[in-house]
Each structure stands twice: as structure tokens, then as C-alpha cells.
Design a protein around this nucleic acid. Structure first.
Lengths: 141, 141
DNA sequence: CTAATGTGTAACTAATATAGTCACATAATG
DNA sequence: CATTATGTGACTATATTAGTTACACATTAG
């Protein structure tokens, strides 16, 4: 897997921390420490998933499309992973071998169950939870 | 992630299906449909994790190091992933931003919980379970 | 001893994925 | 219409991954 999931969560947390003010890709890129164009590409994915929306022009930028309390990590996860499996299975095992012929279907079943468990756990945290974790961390420090 | 986990499970299932007879890397490679040297590299990892052992010379090959009933998918998973995280976090966010400064620690916590859930689910299946799934699949067909 | 069989492993290549960058068209605002 | 900001295509550099070759070393049988 790539770091797009982590970056996407970072972006959404930033948007929530910005209290309804549109955030420019340049400002976000400054916090993530990368390129604005990269951020805009990520925002495109998040917008497609209905998690953010963007306003063009001066004073524009990105906003959460719905309350942070109603965006969980699994929403973000699905937005960035699309349909690709997180645990890939090797291609073209030998069809003349009983194990080779059947292993993919068996693995797919087990791996999907495992990924489902991962998604369930991700569904327990919202962007709002994350921001409050960050806030309390900041207060301690 | 890469397909090494899937291949490793394939290998172990093959070893179990071979009923205690040493399996050569060439035979295993025939079922996985890849190169014997690749299989030997994987077997090295599995041996290091205590899941297999190998005998050199004629009549040699790889064997399970313990009963298939006592090898779960999470054992294999840990053998191939070592300590690398399955959900990576982006490096070097901006330390001058409250969110950037703290996001990594927060993400790590949540991602680890999710990976733990995935591992728990993987722990519910043994290599013996997999082989019997395959066998029953073969009988139906 | 030695020929044959098989593992262990280093070195290399090709293909793919990933992150990053640049340039510019397009849209909105005042 | 000048400015600000997004949307997006094209490109590059780097890392990861899978695959391949070659050969040293271990074991067994004859």
C-alpha cells in the first residue's frame, strides 16, 4: 500500500481544524510537506467519494462535504483504495496442480475476511475523533 | 503489499499436501508458476520464522517444521512482513503545524489497531484448514 | 571418491508503482 | 480584466517487486 491513505486523513483533519474556512492546496501542502498539485489530485479522489468539495477562484479552497463526526477512517480508506485489494494474491498458479488450481479462491475468501476486520476497526474512528486526539496531545505538550 | 504472503501460504499448503515427503523448490515453483530460486528465497524466510525446514542433497527439499494444525495465517503473515507496516504513514509532515506535528503518532495508533484486527482474523485459519478447504473444493468439482 | 541431486545465495535485469514536479487551461472574484 | 486558486496532463526520479542466471556448498548413492 502507499501513503495516500495517511495523507488523505491528514488532509481531512486539517480541513476540520480549519473550522469551515476553505483551505488552499498550497496551505495543505505546507502541512503535509509536499506539492500542491499532489494535494489537488488527492482532493479530487476525496471529492469523488463525497468527502470534500472545492471552490475555485480567490478565497477558494477545499472544505469537508459533511460533518467530521460523520466521516470515519473507513470512508477515507475506501476512497483511496478504490477496489484494489490490500493483500494481493499471486497470478497464474498451475491449473494442473490441485493446490494451484484452487488456492486463489481459498485465499481470496480468507483475505477478504481479514480486510473486513480491518475496515470494521477503521470504522470506529472519525475525523472528529482524530482532531480531538490531536488537540489533547497539543494541550499536554 | 506484495504477493509474498499469498505465495508463502501457497507453499505451506503444498508442503502439507505432500504428506511429509520433502518438496523440491522446483516442484513448488511448478505449482506457484515461478522460478525455483524465488521459492528458495521465500523458504529461507519461512525457515527463519520456524515454519519450515529444508534438507539438502538428493531426496531433499522443504518440510513443515510443525503440524499444519499449529500454523496459522498470522504466523505466515508475520514471517513475510517482518516489521514493516501494511498501512504506511507519510514522512516529514510540517512540525510547525499543530496537525502536522501530531498526525503521525495519532495515525500510528489507529492503524496499529486496524492491523491488529486484521491479524486476529488471520489467526483464525490454519494451513490445515486451508488444505481441507481445497480438498472439499476438489471433491465438488 | 565421485557423480548426481538439491539447497543457499549473490548479482543482475525488467517491469511496475510511487512520489514528486512543471506547465497551463479553466473558473471565480472583485 | 487582473488576480487567485483549482483541475489536469505530461513528465521525471526513485523504490519496489518479480524474475533470472550463475555458482558455491551440502548430501546421498553407487
Amino acid at each position: 500500500m502507499n501513503t495516500r491513505f495517511a495523507v488523505a486523513v491528514h488532509i481531512l483533519t486539517l480541513l476540520e481544524s480549519n473550522a469551515g474556512e476553505p483551505a488552499t492546496s498550497e496551505w495543505i501542502a505546507g502541512s503535509v510537506n509536499t506539492n500542491p498539485a499532489l494535494i489537488r489530485r488527492q482532493l479530487r479522489e476525496l471529492a469523488k467519494a463525497g468527502l470534500t468539495r472545492s471552490q475555485m477562484g480567490p478565497g477558494g479552497g477545499a472544505l469537508l462535504a459533511r460533518p467530521a463526526e460523520r466521516i470515519t477512517l473507513v470512508d477515507v480508506y475506501r476512497a483511496v483504495t478504490e477496489d484494489s485489494d490490500i493483500i494481493p494474491i499471486h497470478e497464474s498458479p498451475n491449473p494442473n496442480c490441485p493446490v494451484g488450481r484452487t488456492i486463489q479462491a481459498c485465499l481470496e475468501q480468507r483475505f477478504q475476511a481479514a480486510e473486513q476486520a480491518l475496515e470494521n476497526e477503521l470504522g470506529r474512528t472519525t475525523i472528529a475523533d482524530l482532531l480531538s486526539s490531536i488537540s489533547s496531545f497539543e494541550c499536554e505538550a
